[in-house]
Amino acid sequence: MERRKSGAARDRDTEGRARSARPRDGLGRPLPYGAPGVARQPEGVVRTPGATLAEAQRLLDAGLPFHAHEVFEDAWKSGPEAERELWRGLAQLAVGLTHAARGNARGGARLLRRGADRITEESTGPYGVDTAGLAVWARSLAARVESGAGPVDPVAESPRLTR
């Protein structure tokens, strides 16, 4: 670990990039050092589209939308340019669900709508992605959390990604 001018240690990965080593809960919130946390998703994993969807669905079904967002982020960063908006939109849906589950209605609704707008630009729904159904789900959830429904249960609200 490197020390900053303030004297506080700064976590670094093996390449020297700043990375927080604090454990995280299932919604990606930092926990105190030494607390048990949920294992993080490895970063930079290149998967096939089918493997990306399967892994993200597994994580969503387990109530880990923050982790599913990281899987989609890998796909958008490593996939073909023509598919980036789809993967980016799916990542925004997952992180929108994360914020809604954390009780952040405004941020959750904004990201859910942004993701819905992004994926509906994909007219064909590649890889069996139910873009129309996901857009309806996202907009409905956004309206509910904005209406004051409170934090949502990420397991109960887990969307189906494919038809």
Rank of each mutant, 00 (worst) to 15 (best):
L141N: 00
T124G: 00
A54Q: 12
T14E: 14
A68Q: 12
G133W: 06
L161R: 02
E146L: 15
D153K: 11
G63M: 14
G96I: 04
R3M: 02
L97H: 03
G125Y: 00
L161C: 06
G44A: 07
R29E: 15
S20C: 15
V95Q: 06
R19V: 15
P49N: 05
S123H: 02
P126Y: 07
V95W: 10
Y33S: 14
T14I: 15
A105Y: 03
G96D: 00
G44Y: 07
S147L: 03
A109I: 08
E43L: 12
G28C: 08
E15R: 14
S140E: 15
A54R: 13
G44V: 10
V95H: 08
R113Q: 10
L31N: 11
D117R: 09
S6L: 06
L112V: 08
P42T: 15
G50P: 03
L64K: 11
T14S: 11
P32C: 03
V46M: 06
G44D: 11
A135H: 00
G96T: 09
F72C: 13
A100D: 04
S6D: 15
A68R: 10
N104W: 03
E121T: 02
T98K: 09
D117T: 10
G115D: 05
A75S: 09
L141T: 12
T52N: 12
A35G: 11
E81L: 14
R40D: 14
G148F: 06
A132H: 03
P80L: 14
E73L: 09
P126M: 08
V152M: 01
L134K: 03
V152G: 03
A21D: 07
A8C: 05
R22M: 12
G7V: 04
G128S: 02
A35T: 15
A116K: 04
L59G: 06
R102W: 10
A39V: 12
F72P: 13
T124C: 00
V152R: 07
G107V: 14
P36W: 04
S147W: 01
G148M: 07
D13M: 11
Y127N: 00
T48Y: 08
L97D: 00
K77V: 12
A54I: 05
T124M: 02
G115K: 11
P154N: 13
V155D: 01
G63N: 09
A138T: 08
P30I: 05
V145L: 10
V129W: 03
R102V: 09
A18E: 08
H67W: 13
G50N: 10
P159K: 09
R110F: 09
L53F: 03
P154C: 14
R84S: 05
P65L: 14
E122N: 02
G115W: 06
A35S: 13
M1E: 01
L86T: 04
W87Q: 00
E43Q: 10
A62T: 12
G7H: 07
A94G: 06
S147P: 05
P32G: 13
D74V: 13
S20Y: 02
P36F: 04
A9G: 11
R139T: 10
